[in-house]
Design a protein around this nucleic acid. Sequence first.
DNA 1: GCCAACGTTGGC
DNA 2: GCCAACGTTGGC
Length: 150
Amino acid sequence: MASHWLMKSEPDVFGIDDLAKKKTGGWDGVRNYEARNFMKVMKVGDKVLFYHSNALPSGVAGIAEVCREAYPDPTQFDRKDGHYDPKAAPDKPIWFQVDLRFVSKFPRFVPLDELRGMPELADMALFKRSRLSVIPVTPAQWMRIVKRGG
DNA sequence: GCCAACGTTGGC
DNA sequence: GCCAACGTTGGC
């Protein structure tokens, strides 16, 4: 059975409309071990809430799904890339990414304010761990949020 | 642009 | 191994 996740992206850099246009997108640049570990256990077909962070307003913009499981993030080896990690080498990669496929854009954007107001979501790491960019979502939470998205 | 939260680094 | 300093994230 597919797992559910919430993944953050800054819409100024890569938002739901960018994914819709490209159909698929690589989730590179994650440099947090916990977020990386979550990506490592993702399976093709896992469902993802596409969250806009650092946005006005921030919130869930739509749905994507995992279309390629974790593989080494090439930006860690690229000196010219802002995500370059000198401790990583191609034979011992540190950072991984998954690829996502666009599924749908919510007819109704669900802002963070509204998520905060939903008692079913009170336990979500989204609120307690504000800096975590990849967050597991329970099926019940998933259903609630998707319903709000119309 | 500011700043609080918090993860990471590095000196000891 | 501790912990202060530092850097980054993300809401506002």
